[in-house]
């Protein structure tokens, strides 16, 4: 099982390598990737440095170009694929079929991974991407239960990668327009959910208010933890009740399922968090490296250590970590 780790910067990439990543995924600093945040990601100079460090240590580099290309700037997305191919990246992670067609024709040797943003959840959907574009691996959306993941792995024609840890996106990725409904910008079109320029944090009386394009998302009392200002994690009024109507700020942690995922034939575990610091990457990657090694060596005797749980809990968005959709009662 391959451990696929996030890096939004060169130090984060080094932290991932140093702590045992098998592969690191990065993005270019523009709207071609789904973490299009100011100051994050790689320009050409840093991408080259990244590649050099990856090669020196015998790891793999994946480049996420996982937003949907716009017609009038299609060449920008094409150029991103060309840059990744030029770097000799081990794979590009794509979501847009227009771009997949281009990558396949122009760079037939470049491995294509299907991004979670493409939201493929069934064997025929995976077969579509394999037949049409020759994808070798797909990242599954965080909407399937463990049983569904097992069934899909058995029926799949390509390698499957699943999310192990990170901030939890509760909607089917790539099929959520909540952000653009309020702010005009969305993951699919702009590579951002709740763009920072639309976010406002303000202290009002004893509460911390957060707004998105003027719309009140939540109010936190002094003792309450905060989350990312995304719409799905706000507190709203439904039927007169103030509640986390969609989801609380929560992180996904599927570590306890590692033996089952391995037995099912899952080929890779992905950690979320290209927007996080090298400190997060070090701690989370080291923890997952130890856990995966434990599963590989001891198989069924695997137990999640308290120490791992503490480290992951500390780095989580929200206090708790849950299995998310893997666990039916969550749904």
């Amino acid at each position: 099982m391959e451990l696929v780790c996030p890096a939004g910067s060169l130090p984060a990439l080094e932290a991932a390598i140093d702590n045992g990543a098998d592969a690191v995924y990065i993005g270019f600093s523009d709207e071609t990737n789904a973490r299009n945040f100011g100051g994050l990601n790689f320009n050409d100079k840093n991408a080259l440095r990244a590649l050099e460090r990856i090669r020196n240590r015998g790891r793999k580099l994946y480049v996420a170009i996982n937003t949907y290309a716009k017609p009038d700037s299609f060449t920008r997305w094409q150029a991103a694929v060309d840059r990744a191919a030029g770097l000799n990246a081990d794979a590009v992670i794509l979501a847009d079929i227009g771009l997949m067609g281009y990558a396949q024709r122009r760079h037939p040797d470049l491995a294509l991974h299907l991004s979670v943003q493409a939201s493929a959840t069934s064997a025929p959907a995976l077969e579509f991407y394999r037949q049409q574009f020759g994808i070798r691996r797909a990242v599954l959306p965080r909407v399937l239960s463990l049983k569904q993941v097992q069934q899909l792995t058995a029926a799949s024609c390509v390698e499957l990668e699943v999310f192990g840890f990170g901030s939890l996106c509760i909607m089917a990725e790539g099929r959520c327009h909540l952000s653009s409904y309020i702010t005009g910008e969305s993951p699919n079109k702009n590579g951002v959910c709740s763009p920072a320029k639309a976010v406002e944090w303000r202290k009002v009386a004893n509460e911390l208010e957060t707004r998105l394009n003027g719309v009140l998302i939540d109010r936190f009392a002094d003792h309450e933890n905060a989350g990312y200002p995304t719409l799905c994690k706000g507190r709203f009024i439904v039927d007169g009740k103030r509640q986390h109507a969609l989801e609380e700020p929560t992180s996904l942690n599927s570590m306890a399922l590692l033996p089952e995922l391995k037995a099912a034939g899952i080929k890779a575990i992905k950690l979320e968090g290209r927007q996080r610091s090298p400190a997060y990457v070090s701690q989370v990657v080291r923890t997952w490296r130890e856990a995966i090694d434990q599963v590989l060596q001891h198989g069924d005797d695997f137990l999640v250590k308290d120490r791992w749980q503490e480290t992951l809990a500390k780095n989580s968005e929200g206090k708790q970590t849950t299995l998310g959709a893997y666990d039916r009662p969550w749904q």
């Binding site: 939004g8 910067s9 130090p11 100011g38 100051g39 994050l40 920072a196 905060a226 610091s277 997060y280």
Partner: peptide, 29 residues
């Protein structure tokens, strides 16, 4: 990790969030 501190309300951002976020990311890099 700054986001961790942010979730725990130990790090606060005010005014234009984008500037604060970009500074954070640049310093991480």
């Amino acid at each position: 990790d700054p986001d961790t501190l942010f979730f725990q309300r130990r790090l606060c951002l005010g005014g234009q969030t984008e500037i604060g976020l970009t500074v954070k990311n640049r310093l991480d890099a």
